[in-house]
Design a protein around this nucleic acid. Structure first.
Lengths: 184, 184
DNA sequence: ATTCTCATGTAATTGGTTACATGATTGC
DNA sequence: GCAATCATGTAACCAATTACATGAGAAT
C-alpha cells in the first residue's frame, strides 16, 4: 500500500513514543506544522488506514474514565518509516501570498509594496517567536534532529524577515533618490 | 464575489498585458510557480468565472487560423486587483518533505540525515539555476517588482542550500568527534 | 453551573493536480 | 510524414481544511 506523506508523519511521530490521535494533533501543532500541517480530518482516518495495514497498533487506554486509543508502531511500521527516510525527499512547495502581492506591486506604482513587505516581515518574526519558545524544549530531548529542524525554522524565518527589512529600506531609499514617475 | 488567490494571480498577470489561457500558464511556469503554481484545470475555469464576474474580457484573436481567446482586465478588474494588493497577505504555507525526513532522522540513528540534506541542497540549487536563467529577462522589463521577487527566490534558495551544506558539515564533524552510540 | 480541555470522529467543501480528449499549425 | 508546440477544455481524483457533532472529566 502506498502511503501519503501525512501517513509517514504519523509513523514518524509514533517512533518518538506511543500517542493518541489527539496527542498527535497537539504534537504536530507544536512542532512540524510550519512545514507540514495536519488536521483531525486527516489524522483519524489515516490512523484507521495505518492500523488496517498493520503498520501501527491501537490499544484502548482510557485516561481516568475518558475513552482513549493509544497507537504505537509495529515492527513493520518501523521498517516502513526507515524505508521512507532512505528515499530522497520529493515534495517542496511554497504558497506565499506576500511574494505574489510583491510581484504585482508595479500595478500600484509600488505603493502597496512597503506595507506588503512589512506584513510579511511581521509574519516571519511571529514564527521566529513561536519557534524560539519551543527551542529549549527541543533541546532537552534525547533526539537531536528535532532541534536541528527547529533551528532551521528560526534562522530561515529570521533571514526572510531581514530580507523584507532590507527591501523596504532599499525601496524607500530609491523613492527618495528618484520619486516615482509613473503610477501605472 | 469572493476571489480565490489564483483568481488574483490571473488578474495580476493580465495587468502586465493581455494574454490567452495558454500564455498565462506558460507565464506562471516561468515566473511565480515557485511560490504559487497553477494548472490548466484551474486557469480555464477561473477565466470563465472572472469573465462572468466582469473583471476580465475575452476577445477571439485567432493566431494564424488557430482559435485563441485573449483576455484583458476591465476597469473593475483593475480595481479589484489594487484592492487585493492593499490587503495584508495572509497565506504562507510550506510543505517540505526534506525537513520532515530530517526531523525524524533519529530513528535511523542519524544515518539518513546526510543524504536527505544532500538531496534538499541539490533541489534548492536547481531552483537557483532556473531563477538565475530568468533573472536577465526580469531585469529587462519595465516592471521592477518581478525582478525583486526573482532575486528573493535566488537568495533564499541559496541560503537554504548553504544551510544544508553547513548542517551536513557539522554532522559529519560531530560524527568523527563522538561516533554514534545508539542506532535506536 | 459553566467553561476548558481531552477525545474521537464525520461531512461538506475547497483548492488543486493529473490525465485525458481534441485539434490545428509549424518546423524538421 | 512526424514531432513539437499552440490552444482549450473536462473528468477523475487527491489532499487537506473547516465546521460540525458528540460527550466526558477537570477546573473554577
Amino acid at each position: 500500500m502506498e502511503l501519503s506523506p501525512t501517513g509517514h508523519v504519523i509513523l514518524g511521530l509514533l517512533s518518538l513514543g506511543p500517542k493518541s490521535g489527539y496527542e498527535i494533533k497537539a504534537f504536530v501543532d507544536r512542532t512540524v506544522r510550519f512545514f507540514w500541517a495536519a488536521s483531525y480530518g486527516q489524522i483519524y482516518p489515516e490512523l484507521r488506514r495505518l492500523a488496517d495495514a498493520g503498520l501501527i497498533e491501537g490499544e484502548a487506554r482510557p485516561a481516568g474514565g475518558r475513552r482513549r486509543t493509544v497507537y504505537e508502531l509495529t515492527a513493520e511500521g518501523r521498517r516502513r518509516l526507515r524505508e521512507w527516510l532512505a528515499v530522497d525527499p520529493a515534495v517542496f512547495e511554497m504558497r506565499d501570498e506576500g511574494l505574489l502581492k510583491l510581484f504585482f506591486a508595479d500595478s500600484t506604482g509600488g505603493a502597496s509594496a512597503i506595507e506588503t513587505l512589512a506584513a510579511k516581515r511581521r509574519h516571519h518574526l511571529e514564527i521566529v517567536e513561536v519557534l524560539r519558545a519551543i527551542e529549549p524544549l527541543a533541546a532537552s530531548k534525547a533526539e537531536r534532529f528535532p532541534l536541528v529542524v527547529c533551528r532551521f525554522g528560526i534562522e530561515c524565518n529570521q533571514w526572510m524577515a531581514d530580507w523584507c527589512q532590507r527591501m523596504a529600506d532599499e525601496l524607500s531609499a530609491s523613492e527618495k533618490a528618484e520619486p516615482r514617475r509613473r503610477t501605472a
